[in-house]
Computed example of a mutant assay.
Amino acid sequence: MLTILGKETSINVRKVLWTCRLLDLPWRLEPWGSGVRDPRVPEFMALNPNAQVPVLRDGDTVLWESNTICRYLATRAGDTPLLPADALARARVEQWMDWQATELNTAWRPAFMALMRGSDKFDNAAVAASVGDWNDKMRILDAQLAHTGAYVAGAAVTLADVVIALSAHRWRMTPIEHASLPAVEAYLRRLENVPGFAQYCGPDTP
């Protein structure tokens, strides 16, 4: 059985848990993370020197970085629409996963941490800039969803949706001025029929 080190309130842990749900993989959660069990201890840092969750243990295999873990699980499971075998189709999925990890996450971090986590590391100007950047990045997503008419990488749910839906849900839940993005709103409604969406993108999981 897979062991996932982390906590369900972590957006990055939820990526991995949702992927396991969609692949029907058995797993157990070992509680780690801020407010639960401090990962800045030798025991944990021997697994991930960054002292961040999640960490995956699969037998003797140890992996960190949530998007990498999701890719590994999908590849491990074999033929799955979550990560197509075709080189170009897979690259399309991974392109949007990388965009989520670099562009989208970077945009929302100051606003989210200040408004939802109470961080005092960001002043009002930094928060306002973050809100603007976040909406700009979400407009890119809206245009992509309007183009596909369904999910991020095309007609089927993929890992791109797992990671991006969590960030889109976070955008919707954060008390900011939201850009009008009809394709994103339709997308989130569409995802309500996907197993695991209600659990990992519910009102109690910003």
Rank of each mutant, 00 (worst) to 15 (best):
A101Q: 14
M116C: 06
K121R: 15
D123G: 01
T102N: 14
D120M: 09
D98L: 14
S130R: 10
D98V: 13
V131Q: 14
V127L: 10
A129L: 11
Q95R: 15
E94D: 15
S119R: 04
A101K: 10
F112M: 02
R109C: 05
W99H: 13
A91G: 12
Q95M: 15
V127H: 08
P110G: 03
E94I: 06
R92N: 13
G118T: 04
A107S: 09
L104G: 02
N105E: 14
T106Y: 11
Q100D: 10
F112G: 00
W108N: 05
A107F: 08
G118M: 00
F112P: 00
F122H: 11
A111N: 11
M116T: 06
A111E: 03
S130P: 08
M97Q: 13
P110S: 10
G132F: 08
S130M: 06
T102L: 14
N105M: 12
W96T: 04
D98P: 07
Q100C: 08
R90K: 15
F112S: 00
F122E: 02
F112C: 00
L88D: 12
T106I: 08
M97W: 04
M116Y: 01
R90T: 00
N124I: 08
P110I: 03
N105D: 06
A128Y: 04
A111L: 07
R117D: 01
M113P: 02
A91L: 14
W99E: 12
Q100S: 09
V131T: 09
N124G: 15
N124W: 00
V93P: 07
F122I: 01
N124S: 15
L104R: 09
V93C: 11
D120N: 09
Q95D: 05
A114H: 05
M97C: 06
N105W: 05
Q100K: 07
E94H: 11
